[in-house]
Design a protein around this nucleic acid. Sequence first.
DNA 1: GCAAAAGTGTTAGGATTACACCCATGT
DNA 2: ACATGGGTGTAATCCTAACACTTTTGC
Lengths: 241, 241
Amino acid sequence: MNAYNHPAIQYYQDVSEQCIHYLSIDGVIFGFHENQLKVLLLRWKGTTEWSLPGGFIRKTESVDVAAQRVVRERTGLDELYLQQFHVFGEAERYDQADTWARTKLPIQQVNWSERTISIGYYALVEYSKVVPTPDFLTEECCWWNVDDIPPLLFDHNHIVAVALSSLRRQFADQPISHLLPSAFTVPELQRLHETILGQPLDARNFYKKLMASGTLERLSERRAGTPHKAPYLYRFKPTDI
Amino acid sequence: MNAYNHPAIQYYQDVSEQCIHYLSIDGVIFGFHENQLKVLLLRWKGTTEWSLPGGFIRKTESVDVAAQRVVRERTGLDELYLQQFHVFGEAERYDQADTWARTKLPIQQVNWSERTISIGYYALVEYSKVVPTPDFLTEECCWWNVDDIPPLLFDHNHIVAVALSSLRRQFADQPISHLLPSAFTVPELQRLHETILGQPLDARNFYKKLMASGTLERLSERRAGTPHKAPYLYRFKPTDI
DNA sequence: GCAAAAGTGTTAGGATTACACCCATGT
DNA sequence: ACATGGGTGTAATCCTAACACTTTTGC
């Protein structure tokens, strides 16, 4: 394949015609597995360089819909907890020449050296339901522990950091349901909160506060297949509105 | 003046060349005066229609800088507390035909019927320092009590509502200095907080909490020229970072 | 002097934190 | 039996909310 029929060229031509210039979406897709908060990253074809998934907004498409599209294409998931959290609008967000060189795209061919404003969204998804799927510019899509993220392309390390702090602020005082399956145990929820907060929590106080919130209901089953005492399963009460 | 030399035409031509398409900034400029939270609005030429101030982003300009520019041009102020709070990106945010008719612009002449994504910023400014200045499409710029805002052009009533709730959330638990002069009295600060929260506060508890925060220092002067007992002036301690 | 606002301390209640033991299960 | 994690109550502390009187000043 030479630079002239590189799939990026057709893609950027289509984007150029159909999408809004200078504007993009970056998605920080959070999952939770084995007591680790994870983020979905993409490895670019023929490189060892990683980035967040992203995309562009069609000229008549709602921004939220575009963000959903981005996340859906990488995860296969449709019903999403999706939250706009920041616009990254600096005139020089990163070293463009360096970054495009690292992607190994024949970017000279596509007139896409303009500056980009990016709208950051984060998604909270159920890890086990995700089918990580690379796009046509990338050859690998997989989960990374947020604590072990390598240096990313563009300013994506910064975007992840802002997403994480937004997530922490937003859920400072409410239980997070979206990263777990609909039925879960209290200790599982506690591990999730501990991971996001980055500090251990007292099991008794956690349990008490949770019950006081009145949003949980205990199911009749317990979590099977574990060693030791089988914990009860709970779910969030359906909100009847 | 006919439609062909309407200043809007030249403006939109310039914007079209120099600025990013489909993207704009709307500014919710908050002030505080006579125990009322106020917002700066513009009345469009030859109409009784009001809107928020707004503007466009130059192709190589940081979004924050563009927002500063918008606010500076309407207020004359340069050092601003400015906060990005939401992106309004719905595909159909308002009835375009209706809105453009209400502006009485010869908008058929300017090819500007495209959809717009708007980045919302709010600014907290010192009321007395503002020189409200209309732009070339508007003939009046003045303060409105947030509680008395008329039906605005575009979806600007919605934007104000979101700005206000962001402001309340953001300052749920910290004193707001930016809407008052640098030296102020505790009762003045209390009125401000009461106005933003929409509920009365207990003076003793307010005072205690404020002092406990350790961020205030009492000046030697008192507020002169008031009837009754002269209150002490305070200021926020300069943060030595 | 009197009306109006400023300035301040104490107490009660609610929420948060700290802390320890028994239970169920798989090995 | 024992190792491992689950499940739960009580007491101390801190924070928040309620509440009233004296001081100052202009009129």
